[in-house]
Nucleic acid binder design. Structure first.
Length: 541
RNA sequence: GCGCCGGUAGCUCAGCGGAUAGAGCAUCGGAUUUCUAAUCCGAUGGUCGCGGGUUCGACUCCCGCCCGGCGUACCA
């Protein structure tokens, strides 16, 4: 059968004669001339598609909401928020690149009983905030919370005051609200210092934003409530009972939407966000980038929304769950003191280590030829350190836990950000060395693929489109990191003095130009790919 | 108890129906008078947790076990 297929296919213009290779396999080998034609067709220079390496936006754009990051404003952001933020941002970038309208929704926790405690504590330790709420400064949110909690546990009067403050807050008492708002804004400033550093932009929408919509959720549920129905009261709480979920005792498991004390919880606000996202933002697709631990919660939420018929069938809901970040010993990530590891500190540490890496000298004692000024070295360290953390996170399959290991993520060898950034910087340096502006390379000159390393680099370059298809369809960032790593390796071989080819001093001129164009295409592909991961490139390092 | 996610080379991880299971690190051995060696080439190393089944073909799908983690009504 295979030979019958081989005889009949007409693919001479782009493929070598196919060969039967064992039972069930036919090998097709694309002709270098065809690969070259494909690469020649990629727009360059000042073409608007040059930075997109020729990839056109989709024709059926959707409106997509991505729920990401979502820290609790009561505390400092910690490692736990890293994955949601970095993965969510990457997915958003990929979908935006495809041409979709993306809303990055930061569903921050700014509501609930702990805020009564925090406001009461703030009032007692910084009484002046009542008059000047905008002057509030809390250097360390984490210890502020710990102190408030300690007082709450030890002091009954303060406990009562805290509970009264929650009530006042929810009733809308102006003075309480003012202090609460000041606290939240201060906490958000801490968050955005990190977002800015990570290059992540998103829209903050706290639980409090949904206060009216939560009431609307309750009204709608009350309207369809029946004694033994899908929506009913149970043990004093208003509940939805999606099918197929049970408690330890095998009884139907409710999603509690209004607690028996009348308060709301995350199910209430998650339902409210859906109303906002569907009715106001007009979302076609909603993606929740939240840890795998909440898988059941989202399964119940989506099931409930479908059953309630609150959204059009064509709106899709996806929980993009991910595993935990563990310490190097495989245990939950804690500081030496046992507290949660603050994200800001972790990034500082990564950048500090990256700075040391930029000081590395060649192993054999030759002098380094790096010419970075201290300021440039600082900038490179910042870029490399943050890139290392992000890249390492994104390079892991989403569902698996991974060990946060600065040594591995900052290694210059292997599938790491430093290797990738170096490959890019190295290519840019070739352009400088050759005295050419990549953007001005003549795009009408042929690409010539003769050497094995040129052909395999060309094949890799041409896999960008299908790689991005997989990434956006399956929402898997590590498919992109793997591709970029393979591309960088293919380039290292192409450029290797032993197994590769000469570039800057290649002759004749048309071969040199062809190879420089391959360099340019590789640089643009790496830059685009890293950009979609949320990683900035550097021109030298 | 039930459900979900892991269990792949000494270590860190990819692969998740197709051809001899791949990288990096580590170990050992090569290249090199640089187009920035943060490189390249090679070797060693794996009954893909265990046992059944489906299939022409299973790390990949199904069933049952064993480990580890998480979830399982008023935290998120």
């Amino acid at each position: 059968m295979a030979s019958a297929i081989i005889e009949r296919v007409e693919i001479d213009d782009f493929c070598e004669p196919p060969q039967v290779a064992g039972p069930g396999f036919i090998n097709f080998r694309l002709k270098p001339s065809f690969l070259a034609r494909c690469l020649e067709a990629v727009p360059g220079g000042d073409d608007p598609l040059a930075a997109r390496v020729g990839i056109e936006p989709t024709r059926d754009a959707q409106t997509i909401v991505i729920d990401l990051s979502s820290p609790n404003l009561a505390k400092e952001m910690h490692v736990g928020h890293l994955r949601s933020t970095v993965i969510g941002d990457c997915i958003a970038r990929v979908l935006e690149f495809e041409g979709h309208t993306v809303h990055r929704e930061n569903h921050v926790g700014d509501w609930g009983t702990q805020f009564g405690m925090l406001v009461a504590y703030l009032r007692s330790v910084q009484p002046e905030v009542a008059d000047k709420p905008d002057d509030i400064v809390i250097a360390d949110l984490e210890s502020f919370y710990v102190q408030a909690k300690a007082r709450f546990d030890a002091d009954d009067d303060f406990g009562r005051e805290s509970r009264d403050t929650v009530v006042a807050l929810q009733r809308g008492d102006p003075s309480t609200r003012r202090i609460w708002k000041a606290f939240c804004e201060e906490s958000l400033r801490h968050c955005h210092a990190i977002y800015d550093r990570l290059g992540v932009r998103l829209i903050d929408r706290g639980e409090s934003f949904y206060a009216d919509l939560m009431e609307e959720v309750i009204r709608r549920l009350e309207a369809v409530k029946k004694a033994d129905g899908f929506v009913r009261d149970s043990e004093g709480a208003l509940c939805v009972f999606p099918e197929g979920f049970t408690t330890r005792d095998g009884l139907p498991l409710p999603m509690i939407v209004r607690k028996s004390d009348g308060g709301f919880n995350y199910a209430t606000s998650d339902l409210a966000t859906i109303l906002h996202r569907v009715d106001t933002l007009k979302a076609d697709r909603i993606i929740y980038v939240v840890g795998l631990a909440q898988k059941q919660h989202f399964a119940m939420l989506f099931s409930a929304v479908r059953r309630l018929g609150w959204v059009d069938q064509k709106v899709s809901f996806e929980h993009l769950g991910f595993g935990n970040v563990l310490a190097a010993d495989g245990r939950p990530f804690k500081t030496r003191e046992g507290g949660t590891a603050k994200l800001g500190k972790l990034l500082d540490e990564a950048v500090k280590r990256a700075r040391a890496v930029t000081q590395d000298q060649p192993a054999d004692g030759r002098p380094s030829i790096r010419t970075l000024s201290p300021d440039q070295a600082d900038a490179v360290a910042e870029a490399v350190g943050l890139a290392a953390v992000k890249y390492f996170d994104l390079a892991h399959a989403l569902q698996s836990d991974y060990k946060f290991d600065l040594n591995t993520m900052l290694a210059m060898e292997g599938n790491t950000a430093p290797y990738m950034l170096y490959a890019y910087a190295r290519i840019r340096s070739i352009g400088r060395k050759a005295g050419v502006d990549f953007a001005a390379l003549p795009s009408d000159q042929a690409i010539i693929l003769e050497h094995a390393s040129e052909i395999s680099l060309a094949k890799k370059l041409l896999q960008l489109t299908e790689t991005l298809d997989v990434v956006s369809r399956e929402l898997r960032p590590n498919v992109l990191t793997d591709y970029l790593y393979e591309l960088a390796r293919a380039f290292s071989r192409f450029y290797d003095k032993k197994i590769g080819v000469r570039v800057v001093d290649a002759t004749p001129e048309n071969v040199r130009t062809s190879r420089l164009r391959l360099c340019d295409l590789t640089a643009r592909t790496l830059k685009l790919g890293l950009h979609l991961l949320g990683i900035n490139t550097v021109e030298q390092m």
